[in-house]
Structures are given as C-alpha cells and as structure tokens.
Design a protein around this nucleic acid. Structure first.
Lengths: 210, 210
DNA sequence: TCGTCAGGTTAACGGGGTTAAGTAACCTCT
DNA sequence: AGAGGTTACTTAACCCCGTTAACCTGACGA
C-alpha cells in the first residue's frame, strides 16, 4: 500500500449497475470516522464525502439526509448488540442467569462503542426516524428474547408473576442507565462496571423472587 | 407593553455597573427558547441574541461559548431537581421510603423538562464542562442526600451492608435509565411511569434486604 | 454509432459559531 | 462644563455546515 494521499484522489466512476457500491463505501467511511474520532460532530457530510473520495451532494443520492446516514451506520451496531446479548444469554443454564449475563454483555458492548450507543439510544431523533428505530427494536430478536426470558423465569418459578413488559423495560432501563451515565460522565469515579451490573441485576432479580 | 414587534427594538444600553444585567437577560431568554421550542437545536446564539434584542457577539461578553451558555441555563434546573428530590424524600418516615419517593420525584421532574434533562445528563460535554458539572454534582445536596439515605438504610437494618456508593449509583442509574429512555424514545408504548418506578425501586430495595 | 440515463460534479444558498476591530454612551475628574 | 478613559456594546467578516438546483459525462443497449 503506497503513500496515502491527503486528497483521496477521486474515485473512479462506478459501472452501470454498481450505484449501490457507493452506498456501502459511504457507510463504512462514516463508521470509520465515527470510531476514529469518537465524536459524532466530526462525522459531517463533507468529511464523509471527502473520505470516500466524492463530492458532498453524492451522499444525497443514497441517503435522504444526514440523519438517515447516521441511523444507517448505527443499524449495524444494533444488530451486533442484539447478537452479543443473545450469545451471552445462550451461555446460561437457567433463564435467571441468562438475564444477568445478557445485562453484562449489554453494558460491555455499549461502553465499547460509546458514540454509536449515544446515537442509537441517547439522541433526539426526528419522528419518522424514531418510528423506524422503534420498529427495528420491536422486531429485533434481542428485545423479544428479553421478554421471552422474563416469561421463562416466571414459568420456572424463579420470578414472581407480574407484567413481563414492565419487568423487561425495567431491566432494560437498568442496563441503559448504567451505560448511558458512564458514557455521558466518563470523568466520574464510577465503581467497577462489572460489579455495578452484577449487583444491580442480582438485587433486582432477588427482589422479584416468588 | 404595546404590540410586541417582530424585531425586538434594540435594548437600551445598560448603565455603567449594570453589565451583568445582560447576563441574566440572556439566560432567561435562552431558557424561554428552550422551553417553548422544546428543542435544543432552536437555541442558537443568534436566536438568543435576537430575543434579548442584542447582536450575537454580545453573548460572548458573558459566556465563553455556546456550551457554557447552555450549561449555565441548565444549572438552575439542576438545583431545582435537587430541591424537588429532597422535598420528596422529606415526606417519608423511614429512609427506605425516602429512596422510593425521591426516585419518583426524580423521574417526574426529568420528564417535565425533557430538553433540560437531556442537556444535563445525556449530552456529550467538553472536558472542562464535564468537570464543572461533576463538581456541581458532587457538592450538590441531592447526591449527598442519596448517599446518606442509603447509609441510613443500612444502619437502620433495612438494607444489607455493602458499598453505599455502588448502591447509590445503581439507584441513580435506575431512575436515570427510565427517564432518559422515555425521553429519547417517546413513541414507545411505555407502561405507566409511576408503575415502573415503583416496581423498579421496590424490587431493587427488596433484593437488598438483610 | 448514437441517444439515453445512471452516476456523478459545480456552484451556490442560507444559517450556524466565533472573532477582530470599531464606536458610542456613561462616569469621573478637573 | 468639558476632556478622558473605561464599559457596553456593534459592524463586518471568516469559515464550516447541511442541502439544493443545475449541469456534465461516461457506460451501455439499440
């Protein structure tokens, strides 16, 4: 790989059917920018276009606006988060342990990708963007697995019977609360993350025993 | 009190010692903008200056940058949040109930001022801004009251002995998690707020019994 | 070969944060 | 009462941002 030029030497034009190639190039360039700078503000349309080797208006051939681009970038991470949580839950032997392992995996994943987590779960989204995100959330295997696991706990007699939706949302709130607080106030002297997650979920689930 | 003009007819210049008058005018104008539009993006330096009846550079006579202005606006709300939580805790008879009442008051307060809550607790702040916020947090009566109340629970035999800091932070995470999730995903079909807060804190505190 | 159309570009608009330099009202001091 | 000097601003401008309208041009089927 030779010397990387400062001006990324305009892309060669894509062949006839290959317009979608640019779309994925934009997505990976935007993701790289987000990860490298760790700052959503650095991901400007112009910076992304420049990284791809294209002019800014070309972005709008594939994304309606900047918001849609950011959401598309983070969709991938949402799938990965779902997968990581499911994988962790799969390691457990009983559904109660599955919830605890999933909780730790969730926080761990979020803290490893703070900017993406911030965009996914801490941002103010426009109405239609939010609707899209919610649809994706509800149809995601992650959230449904959470609900199912809560119900499995109740059926197995590990958890007092109550509204599973409330329990699921509260569990989500606990892990989201820890994750988002640690992301937005990194300079605070937080106790060790694993200790907090373990303590929180253990105590909450203990309090829900039959 | 005539007809309010579209162009707010330039302020009359402040007298000699009264330069600080503009500072408070800027703060209240910015707060009004934030509350009325319910959108942080609408609070631009230019809009604030225009609302006060002054030109944009005047803002910088009193605030280093836009960030400092926003933080100054929300400081007031932080004090109010502390006060509201303390007031609620004061209604309780035992420290365990104090925690529950404070939790509900916290979420209630946050949901009533979503944009301010977002700026205070969900934003990415610059390093020095964050340091200021953390100092204010640590020296706030609200956070110290939380810690004290947790310790009071332990001393009263209402709560198993463990690191009070962990318990306090987790309690904070629970209420922050609920508040911030409901703020950033308002279109989700959340169960009733009071039910969730009550369920969450009750279960968590039950799980922490000796 | 030639027209068409996908896959881009050029140029520009309006608005944002921020700064350097200028100006005018106020107060003091004689 | 008038001259400073300080305070409280303004004027003008810079650079970056998202976004749009209009144009261009190379690839490909007929």
């Amino acid at each position: 790989m030779g010397s990387s030029q400062t001006v990324p030497s305009r892309r060669t034009r894509a062949p006839r059917g290959g317009g979608d190639k640019l779309r994925t190039e934009i997505l990976t360039a935007a993701e790289n920018l987000l990860v490298q700078t760790c700052d959503e503000a650095a991901v400007t349309v112009r910076a992304v276009a420049n990284a791809v080797g294209v002019t800014p208006p070309s972005i709008y051939l594939h994304f309606a606006d900047k918001d849609e681009l950011l959401v598309a970038v983070c969709e991938r991470n949402f799938e990965e988060l779902s997968a990581a949580v499911e994988r962790a839950a799969g390691e457990a032997t009983d559904p109660r342990d599955a919830l605890r392992l999933a909780a730790t995996a969730y926080v761990h994943f979020g803290l490893a990708r703070p900017e993406q987590y911030r965009i996914l779960f801490m941002r103010k989204a426009g109405p239609q963007t939010e609707q899209m995100e919610l649809d994706r959330l509800r149809s995601s295997s992650g959230f449904n697995l959470l609900l199912d696991t809560v119900q499995a706990c109740m059926q197995a007699g590990l958890m007092r019977r109550s509204d599973p939706m409330v329990v699921a949302v509260v569990l989500w709130s606990i892990v989201h609360g820890l994750t988002s607080l640690m992301i937005s106030k990194p300079a605070f002297e937080w106790p060790p993350m694993e200790e907090m997650v373990d303590h929180a979920t253990r105590a909450y689930l203990d309090g829900l025993r039959p």
